[in-house]
Design a protein around this nucleic acid. Structure first.
Lengths: 198, 198
DNA sequence: GACATATGGACAAAATATGTCCAATTGACT
DNA sequence: AGTCAATTGGACATATTTTGTCCATATGTC
């Protein structure tokens, strides 16, 4: 749906570490051009402004992450293993690169200012993917949603919300992973069909 | 000799991490004021310009380091153990804080531009301290400089030069420490008075 | 040669930073 | 309450940097 030629992609890849290093505000188009090994004039041939470039970068990162999620959900394995791996992949792609940076906050704020829609769209798509995966697992009797009186979409929303909360309080390190696994274990136990339980 | 009131010191301590994070060029007086928890107006009461502030910071760092060197050389122990510890202390104080930063190069360049004299003075004082320590050890017969046909000042200069070289090629990590120890072992073996040798 | 693409440099306009100033505020001390 | 010194936000002119645009000139590629 979104097309990005290889030149633009190369520029965005070069721009990311620059934004991480300096933050959005202190990063100049000259900084990015230098990092990408091209002239400032050429840079403006691809992106009309720093805002546009940043949006493209955000879109690229979000697209890659949601792509990873779809791919991960499509693998074999139990539904919760796949969801767990997918959610971790999502965080790895979108959050981890900024996690260690002093400028993470400022960059996140810039993203909310300039690319809120992209972030919102991506979240919608994430929920969609989770919902579809849950619905299919429900149909296959791998899980039993009636046991918790819920619908796939509602459960998908809960999972995403819980991930947000865990990320928020536990950070993005290994603690996040542990929290995710625990949450998934709870979810698995709660939705295992009764005839399969011990 | 150089007086710095506690307020200025507090400001400089707050400024250091800011310079490390953004580099000299991208750091603004507003950034520093914010980090120090004071107003920009107050900041200008202490330092008349960013250059002056940077010089004061450089002076502070160099003074602290040379102070550590003097203290370390004054301890008990063999002359080479003391010199080794002193040189490591010098590097730790002056280089290590910047070592990990992406902006180390730019900051070093800024220092050479704005505070070359301070750096040169400090080096002179370092050589002086080393020279005095070596001369005393020579007088005490702990070492025998005639064995290598040298004078304290010349040997001190060699040590400092070697440290520079080791830092330059080995970096500032644990490799620097290893290189330093090896060099000191060589030096010790070479200058041990013959009547004490195996 | 024709063509598309990249470049350095120049440029005005916009945005930021610098350094200075002052009236108002704060808080400690008498 | 009154004095004093220190700190502040905000205004300000100036200087510097950044932006976004343009073009004449390379630098290949077909």
């Amino acid at each position: 749906m979104y097309e990005i030629d290889s030149k633009s992609a190369q520029i965005l890849d070069a721009a990311l570490p620059v934004f991480i290093r300096f933050g959005f505000r202190k990063t100049t188009m000259a900084d990015i051009a230098r990092a990408a090994g091209i002239s400032r004039a050429s840079l403006y041939l691809c992106f009309n402004s720093k805002e546009e470039l940043f949006r493209a970068g955000s879109l690229r990162a979000h697209s890659q992450s949601i792509n990873d999620v779809a791919k991960t959900l499509g693998r074999s394995g139990s539904i919760f293993d796949r969801i767990s791996a997918a959610v971790l992949a999502f965080q790895d792609g979108l959050i981890a690169p900024f996690g260690g940076s002093d400028n993470a906050e400022e960059l996140f704020a810039a993203n909310m200012e300039l690319a809120r829609d992209i972030t919102a769209d991506t979240r919608t798509r994430l929920l969609d993917l989770l919902t579809k995966a849950l619905a299919e697992a429900d149909k296959n009797r791998e899980i039993d949603l009636t046991a918790v009186g819920s619908q796939p979409a509602a459960l998908a929303a809960l999972i995403a919300a819980a991930m947000d909360g865990i990320k928020h309080t536990h950070g993005v390190g290994p603690e996040f992973e542990r929290g995710t696994h625990l949450f998934m274990a709870l979810l698995k136990r709660a939705t295992t069909p009764s005839q399969l339980r011990a």
